[in-house]
Amino acid sequence: MLRITVELLPGGHESGRRILAHADISNVKSGALANYEVELHDDILGNIGAASLTGYPRMAASVWDLVARCITVVLSGQEELPPRPQSPDVPIHRSYGGSGIPYVRLREIPEPARTLFQRNLAGSTRPLVEDDPEPMDCAHLSDWTDFLAGWR
């Protein structure tokens, strides 16, 4: 079995490293044309999915070709890259009928960005937007834009 581990080294320093995700690739049929099972796991989002890669010509390319194809088949269901993801387009709201503070509704943020952002918000202040149907489901617009920019 191959295990591919994705680690974050903040500032390039080993001391703060943490695992973000891993992939397990198992050879289930050897030979010139091998079959593989692959499972992707994200340490925040959990299991991403599993898939099979069949009839792979083992000695025709580097191990990185195998890894790329295995990841791709889990994410898209085929050996083609899915479309590049876009930044989430989330509506911006203003409290008190448009004259108050700008905010975003967590429920309107698509996954996986919602889960990542909610985790990032832990310990942060959040606006209590009384005129929103779910007032505790809101976040400051500045927190959202900082998150998208990679500043939080």
Rank of each mutant, 00 (worst) to 15 (best):
113 A>F: 06
137 D>Y: 00
90 V>Y: 02
103 Y>L: 00
137 D>C: 00
82 P>V: 14
67 V>T: 13
65 D>G: 13
115 T>R: 04
10 P>A: 10
47 N>K: 11
36 Y>G: 02
94 R>G: 04
93 H>G: 01
46 G>A: 05
152 R>S: 08
33 L>Q: 09
106 L>W: 01
151 W>K: 11
13 H>A: 12
133 P>V: 03
31 G>K: 11
148 L>C: 06
111 E>M: 04
146 D>E: 11
13 H>D: 15
17 R>M: 09
95 S>H: 07
69 R>Y: 08
77 G>P: 05
83 P>L: 07
18 R>P: 03
31 G>W: 14
25 I>S: 04
17 R>G: 09
132 D>R: 00
98 G>F: 07
20 L>P: 01
59 M>V: 13
32 A>I: 11
116 L>I: 08
129 V>R: 00
93 H>N: 07
141 L>A: 01
55 G>C: 10
126 R>P: 01
16 G>C: 06
18 R>Q: 08
82 P>G: 14
35 N>D: 15
146 D>Y: 02
89 D>H: 08
60 A>Y: 09
101 I>T: 06
103 Y>F: 03
11 G>T: 11
79 E>G: 11
59 M>Q: 14
137 D>L: 00
24 D>G: 12
79 E>N: 13
114 R>D: 03
2 L>D: 10
41 H>I: 11
128 L>Q: 10
142 S>F: 03
75 L>F: 02
88 P>M: 03
107 R>W: 01
123 G>Q: 13
122 A>M: 14
64 W>Q: 12
85 P>F: 03
131 D>Y: 03
105 R>K: 03
5 T>E: 14
69 R>Q: 15
148 L>I: 06
87 S>E: 14
5 T>M: 08
7 E>C: 08
49 G>N: 07
11 G>H: 06
86 Q>W: 01
76 S>H: 15
122 A>S: 11
150 G>N: 08
151 W>I: 06
139 A>T: 01
1 M>K: 07
57 P>K: 12
116 L>W: 09
97 G>L: 08
25 I>A: 02
32 A>G: 10
131 D>T: 01
143 D>T: 05
49 G>V: 09
123 G>Y: 12
108 E>S: 04
128 L>W: 10
43 D>L: 15
108 E>H: 10
55 G>V: 08
82 P>T: 14
